[in-house]
Every structure is written in structure tokens, then in C-alpha cells.
Design a binder for these strands. Structure first.
Length: 432
RNA sequence: GGAGAGUUGGCAGAGUGGUAAUGCACCGGACUCGAAAUCCGGCGAACCGGCUAAUACCGGCGCACGAGUUCGAAUCUCGUACUCUCCUCCA
């Protein structure tokens, strides 16, 4: 959520910046008009309330002196009615202001490439050398199926499309990858968290998924209290401090968590129908930071580096891109995506997204800190995947595949694989 | 799932229809070489609006949250959330 004061004071700047994200200037004008009306209404109703408070005191005094205040009371009955009416009108105006305000995206940072879609994303840097083979590399779903470590057919039977069973060393590899990530992140100072996987609607609002993106998630209706299956650990991690005022000395706070993520993938029918790239349920190791505003841009670079280090240690080629104004998420002021090399598709695919949400989520979720002078400020929140586990497994299967269909285990994962250096048809069930 | 109790300022804790006590803490002052103790005074979250150079001032709001009754609600009514205790159930 944006600061209404800033919109009021710099409307042209806001129109210009949000214009890069597809917001029409008329929408801002409407917001400003409603805000003006709202403030006038507040003045009117507060004047009456001040009067009511004053006269109520007088009535109390008269009553204490055993006097008769019936005339004043009759008069105030009217004022009470007026206040009620004005408050109702005010509530309506506030709802209209809020309706627009909570649907406006964050303001992009000045250095974010401007453009309506992913074609305008900009490559920042590239790492690693692309693998070459004497044979045609296979897609990871073929590798996994042939080894018997991934089973889509059974998942389709039991649940439906976009679900999978991991089996044997496939399961162990998944576990190896996320345990490795969690351990690495903890070395960088991220506290490990196991959060709830179901969250309420206030939490979904706090991190910006609601009210705009309700159809992208799964919501469970349990009597009157709907709960949403988290689409990312960002939601429970960032809402952890919702509504709280932290002490300056607590900052920065770094959290990391492995969680399943659930996404309905509405609107992506036909895309990535095979493999681990686009699932309704997948594991992700997430990093979330709460920082002081002046630190947040530096923290975004560090966060991105922390995610990159995982790929470097796994020796997976990737590049970093800055998402354009039109491609970045609703809450983000600037986002770096890490895209890992997927040989069978001969392209880079997103494996991590690292964003500085500035005060956008903090304002929605009311996450603040008190500085040394006792003043209260909004924190800045950041989040990044470090990394999407399923996609990492896909990248490993493809980049580390051998001609005989086996897959070599990246060195750093061997200890996590209990010493296994290669997955073959023979050892794939993990029982020997 | 059943029954009961609770939720007031940073903490503790009064207050059952008429300006939210008091203590600790905190801030300022007195005393003192200085400090502690003591005394005096003060502020009391956060948010919103007005006026602004202003974190100054004025006002609103504010006693878990929401609605209602009333001239007036921390106080009465209804609903909700959470916490605690007991029973039941349970990985």
C-alpha cells in the first residue's frame, strides 16, 4: 500500500511512476478527489464530536448539582443523529479510498527498466559455463521417469495434473537440496523457521496477495474462517511481525524457511505442462528480511547474492535479470530474478525471485520499529527464494545427466546424499 | 467438542453510565561535590484531521475487535478473536 500523504503531495510524480506499471492517471485523480472529500467529512464530524464532548461535560456537571438538563439533552439528541449520519458517509468514503489504494502497486525504483512485460527485463550478470554433451540432453522428466525417481502418472491418478511423486533417491535428492540450502542460509545469519502452511486473510492482505490475487491460491473454507494454503513462505514469514512495533536494535531480522507452496496456476493452462517447473505444490526455501529503510537497497543485493551462492556451490549456470516495471510483482519496488540453465529447453528458467518491497508490505501489515529517539517508522521488507527446490532438482537432473541416463550428484550434496555420488537405475530406490 | 475466567498506557493494576486512579518505569527540576534515597512537577501507546518551519499547538480517536442502546459507554446488550483453567478427544 502506498502512503496517501505522498500521493497527495506529489500526484504528478506518482502518476508518472505508476504509469510505468499500467496505472491510468485518472485513477489517481479519482483517488485524490475522494481523499479530499474524506478529509472534509472528517473535519465536519470531528467538530460535532468536539461539541458533543464539551456539552456532555456540562450535562454531567448540571446533573451532579441535581439540576435539570433535559433541554440540553434534547438538543444533543440531534447532534448525536448528525454524527451518526456523517460517520456513515465518512465510512463510505473511506471504503472507496481504500478500494483504490490497496489495489495500487508499489512504486518502482528509478533504475528499474521501464516496459510492459518480460521483453523489457534486463540481464545484469551471468555465471558459469553452459554444459555440452556428445549426446542430446534429455528433459528432466524423462530422466526422472527412466530412473524411477519421479512419478507423474500415479500423481495424476491420485490427485491430478501438476502433481508429482518423488521416490527413492529422488526424494532424498529433494531433501538434500533443501537441507543444504537451509544450512547455507543459516551460515549467513537467517534464523530457521517452520511456519504455519495455512494463513488467514489478514495475512494474505498484509503481503499483498489479497484482495487482487485471490484466484491464484487455494483457500480452504472451514465454517466461517477461510484459510489459504500458502503460495510462498513469504506470507507467514513476513506476517510474523504484523501489527507490531519492533525495537530498532532488533533489526535487521533474517528468516529462512522450507515450506511447500500451493498455487492454482490459474491462467497458465498449457504452459510447462510437463516436468517440475510448474506445479500446484512445490517446495521452496524462502528468505525474508525486515530492515531499516536506509539499508534496504544494500540488503537486496546481499539477499540476491545469498541465493546466487547456492547456485554457484551447486555449479549450476545462471544469470541475473532485473524485472521490468511491468513484469515485477505487485508489491515489489525492484526485483532480481535468478534464472537457471535448463539444457533441454536451451534456455534459462526462473529459479529465484528477490524483491525489495520497501515499505509497501510494512504499511499494509503495519510492521514498524521505534528508533533511538522513540519515533516510529515503517520497516522495509524483502523476500527471495533461495531457491525453488523442485526447479533446482530439475536443473540438477538436466545439467548433471550422463549419457547412460544416470545423474551425477553435485559435490556439495554428496554428504547430504549419504555419500551417494551418482543416481543410477540400480541404486535409484535408495535401499542398497 | 463442553464449561468457566480473563483481555485497560512499557509493566503492574483500580475503575459497573458522566473528564481513564495509583505504583514502578520514563522525562524535567530541587537537594547533593556527584550519585542513591527523598521531594516537586510532567508526559502516558499508535493512528487521523486542522494549523504549521515544527516531532510545537488545537481537536478527534483510543480501555482486545466489531455492532447496538444512550444526550453521554472502559462501564449496559449482542457478536467475534485470542489467552488461561477444568472436562472430553487426539498425532
Amino acid at each position: 500500500m502506498l502512503d496517501m500523504k505522498v500521493i497527495r503531495e506529489k500526484p504528478d510524480w506518482i502518476k508518472d511512476r505508476l504509469g510505468t506499471r499500467g496505472i491510468k492517471p485518472e485513477e489517481i485523480d479519482e483517488l485524490l478527489t475522494l481523499d479530499q472529500q474524506r478529509r472534509e467529512k472528517i473535519t465536519a464530524t470531528e467538530d460535532l464530536k468536539a461539541k458533543r464532548n464539551k456539552v456532555s461535560d456540562q450535562i454531567a456537571e448540571v446533573k451532579r448539582a441535581k439540576g435539570d438538563a433535559s433541554e440540553t439533552i434534547a438538543e444533543m439528541r440531534q447532534v448525536g443523529g448528525q454524527i451518526k449520519q456523517l460517520d456513515k458517509e465518512l465510512a463510505e468514503l473511506e471504503e472507496k479510498v481504500r478500494y483504490i489504494l490497496v489495489r495500487l502497486p508499489n512504486i518502482p525504483k528509478e533504475d528499474v527498466p521501464i516496459g510492459p512485460n518480460e521483453d523489457y527485463n534486463k540481464e545484469v550478470r551471468k555465471w558459469g559455463t553452459l554444459p555440452t554433451w556428445d549426446f542430446t540432453p534429455k528433459p528432466h522428466w524423462d530422466i526422472g521417469e527412466a530412473l524411477g525417481i519421479l512419478d507423474w502418472d500415479r500423481a495424476a491418478k491420485v490427485t491430478g495434473a501438476r502433481f508429482v511423486y518423488y521416490k527413492g533417491l529422488g526424494s532424498r535428492l529433494e531433501r538434500a537440496v533443501y537441507n543444504f540450502m537451509l544450512d547455507e542460509h543459516q551460515k549467513e545469519g537467517y534464523e530457521e523457521i517452520i511456519p504455519p502452511y495455512l494463513v488467514n486473510k489478514d495475512s494474505m492482505f498484509g503481503t499483498g496477495q489479497f484482495p487482487k490475487f485471490t484466484k491464484d491460491v487455494y483457500t480452504i473454507i472451514d465454517e466461517d474462517e477461510p484459510l489459504t494454503l500458502i503460495p510462498t513462505a513469504e506470507v507467514p514469514l513476513t506476517n510474523y511481525y504484523r501489527g507490531e512495533i519492533l525495537d530498532e536494535k532488533q533489526l535487521p531480522v533474517y528468516f529462512t524457511a522450507l515450506t511447500p507452496c500451493f498455487r492454482s496456476e490459474a491462467g497458465s493452462a498449457g504452459r510447462d505442462t510437463r516436468g517440475l517447473i510448474r506445479m500446484h505444490q512445490f517446495n521452496k526455501v524462502e528468505m525474508v528480511k525486515y530492515v531499516k529503510p536506509e539499508e534496504s537497497w544494500n540488503e537486496l543485493e546481499k539477499l540476491t547474492n545469498d541465493a546466487e551462492e547456492i547456485l554457484q556451490k551447486l555449479k549450476l549456470p545462471y544469470h541475473v535479470i532485473t524485472l521490468s516495471t511491468g513484469d515485477a510483482s505487485f508489491t515489489s519496488a525492484k526485483t532480481y530474478d535468478l534464472e537457471v540453465w535448463i539444457p533441454a529447453q536451451d534456455t534459462y528458467r526462473e529459479i529465484s525471485s528477490c524483491s525489495n518491497c520497501t515499505d509497501f508490505q510494512a504499511r499494509r501489515a503495519q510492521i514498524r520499529y521505534r528508533d533511538a529517539d522513540g519515533k516510529v517508522h515503517l520497516v522495509h521488507t524483502l523476500n527471495g527464494s533461495g531457491l525453488a527446490v523442485g526447479r533446482t532438482v530439475a536443473a540438477i537432473l538436466e545439467n548433471y545427466q550422463n549419457e547412460d541416463g544416470s545423474v551425477t550428484i553435485p559435490d556439495v550434496l554428496v554428504p547430504y546424499m549419504h555419500g551417494i555420488t551418482k543416481i543410477t537405475k540400480e541404486n535409484a530406490n535408495g535401499l542398497n
